[in-house]
Structure formats: structure tokens, C-alpha cells
């Protein structure tokens, strides 16, 4: 067991021992949040706005290459927040994407906050739709909404929320707009007051759909009640080494049980 955890860089257990070593008092939190998004959408700014930290925010894609962590207390609950490296996608094989993907899947954050650039919704949806396949505890932070207004874009965030099946909160983190609403939405999803029904991708070729459904059936049989069987099937079909390993080592089983435990708690 311990062996397994040592291999897993992003597991929360490993992380907390790591932090203890550093002497940062973050081994106690009620909820863990992950902050994901495309590069240069103002993730670090949102992170700073939530934690009161002053992480440097440079204006070039890929500024944040390592994970940074911070914390805050909201409505008497302690939140730990992890700023993941900005990525365009979770399907390629670069290191930063793997860090982000592994944390969202194996780190099992209570809420994943996706930062979207309101001026480039269509491009940002690529990553968003991928995360929606992995987890069902999501809040979307539609950042840079002031920029969008300046560019004469009108965005119907209610419709977007309905389409995606998750809360969508327009913000302008630079000016501090919308942060309260964002906190409330995070609180609601974390406490199960808002149950997400995330959009799953519908398009695709016939042969792919056939292969996926064949595999999904087996996965669902093996891990009953699993919510992201389709995504795991796709990863297996693409030969994703980390997911294959997870299946081999029964990590998915652990993962799934952990979710169950937290839900009954």
C-alpha cells in the first residue's frame, strides 16, 4: 500500500506528508479544490483572489509549471486549493498535462474549478468538456468577463450552465468581481447542495462508439456505479499507460471506494 502511494506523486496522502516536511500547516482541511484551465486564462489571478496569496502572474502561457497550493476558510470550512499547470487538453502526453490529469482523477478533489476565458469560449471548451468526462464535481469560473464585454461579446452564462450541467460563474478576478458568487458555488457543490449533471460528448465515429460501448459495459460491470466509465474506456483504447497501470493495480477500485466513503460520510 505504502509502496503504491510512493509511486503516486499526486496522491493526497503523499502530498500531505510532503507538506508536513515543509512545515506548512495544511494537513487538515475539509475540502480540497483543484484549479484547472487553459494557459493564460488568469488561473493564478483567481488563485490569488481566493487565497490572498500573491503568486506571481506573468503574461505568457506556461508561467505556472509546477503546482502551487494555498488555503482559505469559507463558511467555517477549511479549503485547500491546488493550482494546476495550465493546459490546452488532457489527452496529450506532456508532463504538465499528466500532472493536471492525475490530480483531477487520482487526487480526487472535492471540487474542480475550471477557469475559462470568456473571450475564447469555444477554444476553452475543449479542456472543459474533457474534464467534464472525468469528474462530476465541477464549478466553472468564466473569467475575464470584463474583457469579453470590452470585445462586445455577450455570453448567456445560464444557458452555458444548462448545456454543461454544472454551475457557471462569470468573474473578473483582476477586479475582484464575482469571487463571492464563485465561493458560494464551490460551497454548494462541495457540500452536495448542487448536484452536477455534466455534459458528455455525443459526437464520434461509428467504429469508435462501438468499441467504446463494448468496453464501457465491462468496466461498469467491474466497478458498479462508476461515473466516468466512458472516459476510462477511451483512455484504455488510446493505450494511456497511467490508466492501464491503475486498472492493473486495482487503483480504480480504491478510488471508487474512496468516493463511496466520502459520500456516505
Amino acid at each position: 500500500m505504502t509502496n503504491k502511494l510512493n509511486n503516486c506523486e499526486t496522491c493526497p496522502v503523499h502530498q500531505s506528508t510532503y507538506l508536513k516536511k515543509l512545515g506548512v500547516n495544511m494537513d487538515r482541511w475539509d475540502y480540497a479544490l483543484a484549479l484547472a484551465g487553459n494557459p493564460n486564462t488568469g488561473k493564478s489571478t483567481v488563485f490569488n483572489a481566493l487565497t490572498g496569496l500573491r503568486q506571481h502572474t506573468g503574461n505568457w502561457p506556461g508561467k505556472t509549471v509546477t503546482r502551487t497550493e494555498g488555503g482559505f476558510i469559507y463558511q467555517e470550512k477549511r479549503y485547500k486549493i491546488v493550482d494546476l499547470p495550465g493546459t490546452y487538453s488532457l489527452l496529450s502526453t506532456s508532463t504538465d498535462e499528466e500532472v493536471a490529469r492525475n490530480f483531477i482523477l487520482f487526487g480526487k478533489p472535492d471540487v474542480t474549478v475550471i477557469i475559462m476565458d470568456a473571450t475564447r469560449i469555444e477554444r476553452n471548451l475543449n479542456l472543459t468538456l474533457q474534464i467534464l468526462e472525468i469528474t462530476d464535481r465541477i464549478v466553472i469560473c468564466l473569467n475575464l468577463i470584463d474583457e469579453a464585454r470590452r470585445h462586445q461579446l455577450r455570453i448567456d452564462e445560464r444557458k452555458l450552465s444548462k448545456e454543461l450541467g454544472v454551475p457557471v460563474i462569470p468573474t473578473s478576478a483582476r477586479k475582484g468581481e464575482g469571487i463571492d458568487e464563485l465561493l458560494r458555488a464551490i460551497h454548494e457543490v462541495a457540500n452536495g447542495l448542487y448536484v452536477c449533471k455534466p455534459h458528455h460528448i455525443t459526437s464520434g465515429s461509428k467504429s469508435l462508439k462501438r468499441a467504446v460501448s463494448q468496453l464501457v459495459e465491462k468496466i461498469e460491470n467491474r466497478f458498479s456505479g462508476i461515473s466516468n466509465a466512458r472516459w476510462i474506456a477511451l483512455r484504455l483504447l488510446e493505450g494511456d499507460p497511467r490508466i492501464i497501470e491503475a486498472v492493473k493495480k486495482g487503483e480504480l477500485d480504491n478510488l471508487y471506494q474512496r468516493i463511496e466513503n466520502t459520500e456516505t460520510k
Binding site: Y88, T93, R123
Partner: peptide, 11 residues
């Protein structure tokens, strides 16, 4: 490979 995936990720 990576080159192709990167281009597609960029849209």
C-alpha cells in the same frame, strides 16, 4: 505524434 496532437489541442 506529439506534433499532431499539439496542433489538434490548439484547435
Amino acid at each position: 505524434g506529439a506534433q499532431r496532437r499539439r496542433l489538434m489541442d490548439l484547435g
